[in-house]
Amino acid sequence: MSTKARIKTFFGPTRQYAVAGASNNPSKFGFKVLLWYVSHGLSSIPINPREKEILGQPVVGSVRLVLNAVNEHQDVESYKLSKVDGVSISFLTPPNITVATLKEIATVSGYKDIVKGLWLQPGSYDEAVLDLVDQIGLEGVVIHQDECILVRGEEGMYSANL
């Protein structure tokens, strides 16, 4: 699948978005990417084990909690995860944290059906990350190669009719 097609399938009308590495620091991309989702009216969950709230939104401590809730059709915090068709995740974490998060994802029952997209922002991946994406079978939904949602996200939204 081409990068353009992967960007299109990253988005969906009943999709939940998660921002791994969300930050309260306006100078960090973890803040800027979450703000992008919020400003485009997309339901996005900030993921950060040390924060309680970012941009007025409750923070969830791990991606695994989000995926488990979707799998079990349960809501978390104020997020209506029982009604989504899957989760697309933007990574703004250092590669070693991205690897740890991908390993967590692979422990969730049915993760290949739940995870609809992985957007590896520049700086969040290296060869170890890409190898692990292949090993856990998510290579068909990954966006990387220095693609940034701040640059290409609107194109994906429009191609998905959002």
Rank of each mutant, 00 (worst) to 15 (best):
I47W: 03
L67M: 03
I114E: 05
S159L: 13
K112E: 06
V99S: 08
V60G: 00
A160K: 05
I136V: 14
K80T: 04
K8G: 01
R15K: 12
V59P: 05
G156L: 04
N25M: 00
N24P: 06
K4C: 00
C148N: 02
W119H: 09
V76Q: 05
Y17M: 08
H40E: 14
V66G: 03
G41V: 13
R50V: 08
L132D: 07
V87W: 01
N96D: 15
D85M: 07
A20V: 15
P49W: 00
V76D: 01
Y125R: 11
D113K: 14
N25W: 00
Y125D: 13
V38S: 10
V33M: 09
G61S: 14
I114F: 06
G12A: 08
D134K: 15
N96E: 15
Y79M: 01
H40I: 13
Y79T: 01
S62R: 04
L42N: 10
V70Q: 00
S82K: 08
A160P: 12
I89L: 07
R64I: 15
E154K: 14
Y17N: 10
N161T: 12
L35Y: 04
T14L: 12
V19Q: 06
P13Q: 04
P94Q: 13
P122R: 01
I143P: 03
P13Y: 00
D85P: 04
A20F: 05
G30C: 11
L162E: 07
R50L: 11
N24V: 12
V151I: 12
L55Q: 07
N24C: 01
K112Q: 14
L35P: 06
E72Y: 06
P58M: 02
A128L: 14
S82L: 02
E104R: 08
D131L: 13
R50Q: 12
S90C: 11
S109M: 08
T9R: 12
L34V: 14
I143V: 14
G156Q: 07
Q16D: 03
K28V: 10
I136K: 07
L138M: 11
D113E: 15
N24W: 00
V129T: 10
I89C: 06
S90Y: 02
A160G: 09
F31E: 01
S23E: 04
Q135L: 13
S2P: 04
P49M: 07
D75E: 01
D75Y: 00
F11V: 03
S109K: 13
K28N: 05
K83I: 02
P49F: 01
W119F: 13
S62A: 07
A22F: 04
Q57A: 11
I89Y: 03
G123H: 09
D134W: 06
V108F: 03
K112L: 13
L132S: 07
P58K: 11
G110T: 05
S124W: 11
T98K: 10
D134S: 15
Y158M: 15
V87Q: 02
K32Q: 15
T93W: 03
P13L: 08
F91M: 15
E104V: 05
F31R: 05
Y111I: 13
A106M: 09
L35G: 09
P94A: 14
A160F: 00
L34W: 04
S44I: 09
V108Q: 03
G153C: 11
T3P: 00
E77T: 06
G12V: 12
N68E: 15
T14E: 12
